[in-house]
Design a protein around this nucleic acid. Structure first.
Length: 464
RNA sequence: GGUCCCUUCGUCUAUCGGUUAGGACACAUGGUUUUCAUCCAUGAAAGAGGGGUUCGAUUCCCCUAGGGACCGCCA
């Protein structure tokens, strides 16, 4: 039994979006599950639109979410000669032919088909025609001789058997007039050369698969297994496109989504394993299979990405979380000074409890590192004379404290409540406002202990 | 227009002929709490419609409707 080999084959003509990442993830997980290989192939044969920056973005996205690939990226344009050779071989075998139709002629036929509302399909005009009749001024394209009779069945691992009449597949171009190979040729040749056993890709490739299988058959190559996964739709029910907003990984990392969470979300979008929702990396690999992939397209739900993120923020190891946070700040906010890092790291255990994203942690941590407390205008009137009195008393009380912990602070606050005939809010709220500038924030003991005695005294003394 | 695919709560999904159709997110209500959250409990919420097959259909088949993909000398 041959070792399982899968690949992800994006074209670097735009930023990789979340649907592509899911395809990559499924391929990667499948090969990991089977102990196989996973490759990245950059399909950069569209010279006009392929950009180095997109290639880098693709590679970085995969890296960010934790998908690694065997060997180095396979650059399709480096293999063009192999593709051309196959085209020539097909030509020699009589399984492909030169077509001398001008683009104008083809366009004309398409237009006419549209007017008559009949499906356009190339009329195979040059399939049997002699080249002696060829117009000199036209560089021919090479077309593949598709089957014209009978039916083909694709045994799809996700969709089941798909049957199609062969005459609906036209004699597709495999070599352009300029001699360059087209997608269906290049992809088939590369997949064969790279030894792919399983091709897991979006639903939108289904018709291509019928073409590619014919190339395999013509060349007498072993046909890989195919699995066409349903597409991800945006909330309006359409296929995600590169032109949609907020669908690249960068967009999610920018708002403070962590890779583990997005990976888990993407895994469960269109795939399931019983009722299980949370899959750590090892579990993803252990349980992933093709049987769990659903047949219907699924909609992207940002809400769920947030809640998944919240779950991961609250549950992953704090050191790991801090590494994500640090990286996040460096990339999207500011490089944190060591002292700020230390303070935040020590406070992560309570900061994370109010956070859905790394951005939230960043916002929540601000009170720790500011020089001077700015009290929000709307909260100023909450500080009345009683409040100032209590703050003064509190300051006096803690000045005698050698040990500044929850245990030593609790009796102080309880006494204040009792002696001033108030409740916890009467003490906690003014303290919180004076120390953080807002009436919202972490628990009062978390604030006090994370700031420390000196900083608390300093901030309280600066009031008024 | 042609070909192909899909259809269970708002969303992601479980169910592989017999279930009070389950879970998760979101939502609502209540509780805990020290503000905001968290957390806990409870609730509302689904088989597109119509025919078959069957003792029995969400599940199998057909039709209709709706949605989607593809129909490039792009990938």
């Amino acid at each position: 039994m041959k070792i399982v080999a899968t690949r992800f084959a994006p074209s670097p003509t735009g930023p990789l979006h979340i649907g592509g990442v899911r395809t990559a993830l499924f391929n990667w997980l499948y090969s990991k599950n089977k102990g196989g290989k996973f490759y990245l192939r950059i399909e950069d044969t569209d010279k006009e639109r392929s950009k180095e920056e997109f290639k880098n973005q693709i590679i970085n996205s995969l890296k960010w979410i934790g998908i690694d690939y065997d060997e180095s990226e396979y650059i399709q344009s480096n293999k063009i000669n192999d593709h051309i050779n196959v085209a020539n071989e097909l030509l020699k075998k009589g399984l492909a032919y030169k077509c001398y139709c001008s683009s104008d002629e083809i366009e004309e036929q398409k237009k006419r088909a549209k007017q008559k509302k009949i499906p356009y399909i190339y009329n195979r005009k040059w399939r049997e025609k002699s080249e002696i009749d060829a117009p000199k001024e036209i560089d021919p394209v090479i077309r593949f001789k598709s089957k014209v009779e009978g039916k083909s069945i694709l045994k799809d691992l996700v969709q089941g058997n798909i049957e199609i009449e062969n005459n609906t597949i036209e004699d597709f171009v495999i070599l352009r007039a300029d001699g360059s190979p087209t997608y269906n040729l290049s992809a088939s040749v590369d997949d064969h050369l790279m030894g792919m056993t399983h091709i897991i890709r979006g639903d939108d490739h289904k018709i291509n698969t019928f073409k590619q299988i014919q190339i395999y058959e013509a060349m007498n190559w072993k046909i890989p297994y195919f699995a066409h996964i349903p597409l991800i739709h945006s909330i309006d029910g359409k296929k995600l496109s590169k032109r949609d907003n907020a669908t690249t990984l960068d967009d999610y990392s920018k708002i403070g989504i962590i890779p583990n969470a997005l990976r888990n979300y993407l895994l469960r979008l269109g795939w399931s394993y019983k009722d299980k929702e949370i899959f750590d990396l090892d579990e993803s690999i252990k349980y992933f299979n093709l049987e769990g992939i659903g047949k219907s397209p699924s909609k992207l739900d940002v809400n769920r990405i947030y809640s998944m993120n919240e779950h991961y923020i609250k549950n992953i190891d704090e050191n790991e979380l801090f590494i994500f946070f640090k990286k996040y700040c460096e990339t999207f906010k500011e490089k944190l000074p060591d002292i700020a890092q230390k303070k935040i790291k020590n406070s992560l255990h309570f900061l994370k409890n109010k956070a859905k994203t790394l951005e939230d942690i960043y916002q929540n941590s601000k009170f720790l590192v500011i020089d001077k407390v700015q009290i929000e205008e709307k909260d100023k009137n909450l500080l009345d004379e009683t409040a100032f009195k209590i703050i003064k008393l509190f300051s006096d009380d803690i000045s005698k404290l050698s040990d500044f912990t929850r245990e030593t602070l609790e009796p102080i606050i309880e006494n204040l409540i009792k002696n001033n005939n108030t409740n916890f809010k009467g003490v906690g709220q003014p303290l919180r406002i004076c120390l953080t500038g807002s009436k919202f924030g972490p628990g009062i003991y978390d604030i006090l202990c994370s700031l420390g005695k000196e900083e608390v005294s300093k901030r309280l003394s600066q009031i008024r």
